[in-house]
Structure formats: structure tokens, C-alpha cells
Amino acid sequence: MQYRPLGRTGWNISTVSFGAWAIGGTWGEVDDKDSMAALHRALDLGVNFFDTADVYGDGRSERLLARLRKERSEPFYVATKAGRRLSPHVAAGFTRANLTAFVERSLQNLQTEAIDLLQLHCPPTDVFYMPEVFGVLDDLVAAGKLRHYGVSVEKVEEALKAIEYPGVQSVQIIYNLFRQRPAELLFEQTQKRGVAILARLPLSSGLLSGKMSAQSTFAEDDHRGFNREGAAFDKGETFSGLDFAVGLQAVEAMRPLVPAGMSMAQMALRWIQMNPAVTCSIPGGKNPAQVSDNVAAADMPLLSHATMQALADVYEQYAKPLVHQRW
């Protein structure tokens, strides 16, 4: 496993970490026994950073991580998120009272006295222009409820505004072979400020596993079926906002580019790690086999210049016209 600094926290975290959305819900049926086995496998393989949120299974994902802390002795970091419990999910709801209540609930779910890293959970754009919200987070750090805080964003614009606040240690953003815009300007700015980048949806909702086809079906509670047009939350969270059929075409164009000894998923994760501005990717894993495949990417050989160029060409042809300007 490789490790990189998480912002200015002094922590070094695994370059392939663990995204715990899938073990909470909205990714089809999941079994807690399998989920715990996946979490244990991640620790066994050197993962020391787990990303969750209070709304993943209404706290289910957080509670599983609390179990992991009880069952294992080695230290690891847990990042969670707050804000999506608001209904309606509007900027006016990001008050001191609401944020404090969300934090207290996560502290209870995680069974800890302080949250390692709290992230605002893809709030409305207006929130990034409300200094008082970040002042509340500063106060929660001072009160010992949070060790550090960051943001999870949908758009590059939001990330660029967020990193103007000195307390922001990390930006979580969709960055993968189908969503490359963050590398244009944002990464240069986060490196200058010592802000971590957490690359979420690194496998584009499973598209970049190379295991899907036009015949793939999804459970009723799987966002890959019900959110393709943004019916439940931002469209960009499902298949990176890319039309599913176009995504499948792009995957086929990439298939010949997978180096010998790698799976397509490993190539996609290794591609993210090629950018030194990225602290880690956070692929999900619902069972130990998925975790093992993902984590192995951390120690794979560098991708060649020719492969990187060919992958860039696929992005230019298939994904860029549809997603680049939107997020």
C-alpha cells in the first residue's frame, strides 16, 4: 500500500481507501456480514481511511464502522458527512443548530468523542458563499467535536470557493476516467494550499469495472437504475453523469488499453493515482473480493505515456462533450 498526506492534518492515508456508501444502501441489497468482512479485508491490506456519511443507510454505514473499531486494535481514520439530512436540502438549513445536531448524531453512530474528518455533504452552491457556515465548523473543532473538516462537492466552482476558507483540509469530488475537469485548475490550487483531494466514484458507479453490459439490470433501491436523470440527487453521482449507453461504448474503447496483469478497475484506479494532487481514491466494496481487487491497484506499475494518451483520447471522444462543462 502507498500513503499520501491528507491536507495539513499530519495524517498519511492509503492511496486506495474505502468508500462506504455501498455498504449503507442505494446500491442494491447488501448483507452486514459481507460488509464487515469487506471492512476487515481493507484493514488487512493496509487501508487506513474510510469515508462514509450520516445518510448512507440512515446511519447504517457509520454504525458498521463503529463495529470495526471495536473489533480491531489498529488505528484508522473515519470521515463522515453532514447536511443531506435536511429536507428541503437548501442553504438556509445549514444553521448552527442543524449542523450541531447532525454532528451529535454521527458521534453517537460512530461511538466516538470526536469525528476525524467531517465533510459538508454536497450542499447547495450558495453555502460555499456563507462564511458563517464554516465558522460553525471552526467552533465544532474548537469544542473537540471534530478533529478536522472538509467539503464534498459536485462542481469545480464549489471546490475553488471552499478552499478559500483556511479550515478546509480536504475536497471530495468526482474524479475518474469519465470526469477529468478537476485536473485542469482545481488540483493546482489545492496543491498550493495543501488541501487533500479525495476522488469519489473512481469506478464511475461500476461502469469502469468493465463488467456491465446493455443487459445489466439494477435493483429497485439501486441509484444506478432510479437516478440516471437525477430524479433523487445530482445526476452526476450516477455513472458520472454519462449516458449509460455512451459509457458502455467508452468502456469498450478502453478495453484494449488495459495493461497485462491488471483488471480494468485496477487500471482506472491506477490512472487516478498517477496524479500527485490526488490523496486517495475511495472505491466501494461490498465483499472482500472486491476490496482485494481494488486495493491491489495501489501497488500496480505506472501506466505508460502511450496508455495515458490513449485514455485521454477516449475521454475526449466519448465523455468530454457530455459532462465536462456541467461539473
Rank of each mutant, 00 (worst) to 15 (best):
residue 10 G to L: 07
residue 11 W to M: 03
residue 11 W to G: 10
residue 13 I to T: 14
residue 13 I to A: 06
residue 16 V to M: 03
residue 17 S to V: 05
residue 20 A to E: 12
residue 21 W to E: 14
residue 23 I to R: 07
residue 25 G to R: 11
residue 26 T to S: 14
residue 27 W to F: 15
residue 28 G to R: 01
residue 32 D to Y: 04
residue 33 K to S: 10
residue 33 K to H: 10
residue 37 A to G: 10
residue 40 H to D: 15
residue 42 A to R: 01
residue 47 V to H: 04
residue 48 N to I: 14
residue 48 N to L: 07
residue 49 F to N: 05
residue 53 A to V: 11
residue 55 V to I: 15
residue 56 Y to A: 04
residue 57 G to R: 02
residue 58 D to Y: 13
residue 60 R to N: 05
residue 61 S to K: 04
residue 66 A to E: 08
residue 69 R to H: 11
residue 72 R to L: 10
residue 73 S to T: 15
residue 74 E to Y: 10
residue 74 E to M: 13
residue 75 P to F: 11
residue 87 S to L: 14
residue 88 P to A: 00
residue 89 H to S: 04
residue 90 V to W: 05
residue 92 A to Y: 07
residue 95 T to Q: 04
residue 97 A to L: 14
residue 98 N to S: 15
residue 101 A to Y: 13
residue 103 V to Q: 04
residue 107 L to E: 09
residue 108 Q to N: 07
residue 109 N to D: 14
residue 110 L to Q: 01
residue 112 T to A: 11
residue 116 D to G: 08
residue 117 L to Q: 07
residue 119 Q to L: 13
residue 123 P to I: 01
residue 124 P to H: 00
residue 128 F to C: 02
residue 130 M to A: 12
residue 139 D to Y: 09
residue 139 D to F: 08
residue 140 L to S: 04
residue 142 A to T: 11
residue 145 K to L: 14
residue 146 L to P: 10
residue 147 R to Q: 13
residue 148 H to F: 15
residue 149 Y to R: 04
residue 149 Y to I: 07
residue 149 Y to P: 02
residue 150 G to A: 01
residue 151 V to L: 09
residue 152 S to I: 13
residue 160 L to P: 03
residue 160 L to G: 06
residue 161 K to L: 13
residue 162 A to P: 09
residue 166 P to D: 10
residue 168 V to N: 05
residue 169 Q to H: 08
residue 171 V to S: 07
residue 174 I to E: 06
residue 175 Y to D: 03
residue 175 Y to W: 05
residue 178 F to Y: 02
residue 193 R to C: 13
residue 194 G to T: 11
residue 194 G to Q: 07
residue 195 V to E: 07
residue 203 L to R: 05
residue 203 L to P: 03
residue 208 L to P: 04
residue 213 S to K: 03
residue 216 S to Q: 00
residue 218 F to A: 01
residue 220 E to W: 02
residue 225 G to V: 05
residue 230 G to F: 03
residue 236 G to V: 08
residue 240 S to C: 01
residue 241 G to W: 12
residue 243 D to P: 10
residue 244 F to G: 00
residue 245 A to I: 05
residue 247 G to E: 09
residue 249 Q to N: 14
residue 250 A to K: 02
residue 251 V to R: 01
residue 255 R to Y: 00
residue 257 L to E: 00
residue 257 L to G: 05
residue 258 V to A: 02
residue 267 M to D: 07
residue 268 A to S: 15
residue 268 A to T: 08
residue 277 A to I: 12
residue 280 C to W: 02
residue 280 C to D: 11
residue 281 S to M: 12
residue 283 P to K: 00
residue 291 V to Q: 03
residue 292 S to F: 07
residue 294 N to A: 12
residue 295 V to M: 08
residue 297 A to V: 07
residue 298 A to K: 09
residue 299 D to R: 14
residue 301 P to H: 11
residue 303 L to I: 03
residue 303 L to Y: 01
residue 304 S to L: 04
residue 306 A to K: 15
residue 309 Q to C: 08
residue 310 A to P: 02
residue 310 A to V: 03
residue 316 E to Y: 04
residue 318 Y to S: 13
residue 319 A to M: 01
residue 320 K to M: 12
residue 321 P to T: 06
residue 325 Q to D: 15
residue 326 R to A: 15
residue 326 R to V: 13
